[in-house]
């Protein structure tokens, strides 16, 4: 465990050095992303200016939800950048490299890339929380914890969706669809959805754990919410690791899985 942690740390250090090699990219992408997120959020400012609330869901809630989702999304990009293109790695036969090294394959693959704009998203999440008008110091501590757990669920979801590539042979477009579904559902007021839809948002596309649930926790501490989030993170991660390793048995080093796209 300690050894793997040390390994991760040195990977991240190398990643950081690589990001600094392309610092112009790193800085412009991060600043650009903060601006991008800010402008995008204006849509909700305009919406709630006109309509006040959606079944009790208000602009302040939007600020927090948006903050959680942006920070979690950015954090995954910074620490596990390859979580967004695991599917390509599988179809391209590039898992060979990670399989040939004496380190946990999945962990190594995930942490071997940094999405340069991730830092911008991560930072913007905090700005969004600070701007919500509900900022408190212990709220900030809960925000950080909530972001970590949301990022864990998001990473697990990305792994699950892309592990299906082992069986389907292709997966790029499907992954894009799944990421969009996750983000969209996380960012829209959860009060919109009926019971059936909510079951989906907790169990199938676990967007509730990237939006409404952690947002509720940031607003007010509750043991049961914390328990639920921890359980979700652990459960989805376990499922993800299991599915990935089941799929790995079918991995054919890109020789049989030929991508047609």
């Amino acid at each position: 465990m300690i050894r793997e942690l040390k390994f991760l740390l040195s990977l991240w250090k190398t990643n950081l050095a690589a990001a600094m090699e392309y610092r112009a990219t790193f800085i412009t992408q991060s600043l650009g992303m903060i601006l991008n997120d800010g402008v995008y959020f204006l849509v909700w400012v305009i919406f709630f200016d006109r309509f006040k609330d959606v079944r009790g869901w208000e602009l302040a809630d939007m600020f927090i939800v948006f903050g959680i989702a942006a920070s979690a999304f950015g954090l995954v990009g910074m620490l596990f950048g390859n979580a967004f293109n695991l599917s390509e790695i599988i179809t391209g036969g590039r898992l060979d490299y990670y399989l040939s090294l004496p380190r946990p394959t999945l962990l190594h693959a995930l942490a071997s890339r940094v999405v340069p704009s991730g830092f911008g998203d991560f930072l913007y999440g905090f700005i969004s929380y600070a701007a919500s008008g509900q900022f408190t110091w212990d709220g900030l501590a809960r925000f950080v914890l909530a972001v970590l757990l949301a990022a864990a669920v998001f990473t697990a979801f990305l792994i699950i969706v892309q592990s299906l590539t082992f069986w389907m042979g292709t997966g790029g477009t499907f992954t894009m669809l799944a990421i969009n579904a996750m983000l969209t559902f996380a960012l829209y007021p959860i009060t919109l959805f009926n019971q059936a839809a909510r079951v989906v948002l907790f169990l199938v596309v676990p967007a509730a754990f990237m939006g409404a649930v952690p947002a509720g926790f940031v607003k007010a501490f509750s043991w049961s919410t914390l328990g639920l989030m921890t359980l979700a993170a652990a459960g989805f991660l376990a499922a993800a690791i299991l599915l990935f390793h089941l799929g790995l048995r079918r991995y054919e080093s890109g020789s049989a899985i030929q991508t047609e796209v």
Partner: peptide, 28 residues
């Protein structure tokens, strides 16, 4: 070297000022 951020921001401007997610009629 890097044009992606310009693209994101142009896109978000079309979202917000173009009225892509909310018809402009609902704007102040």
């Amino acid at each position: 070297e890097e044009v992606a951020p310009y693209e994101w921001i142009y896109q978000k401007f079309t979202f917000v000022l173009g009225g892509m997610l909310i018809p402009l009629d609902f704007y102040p």
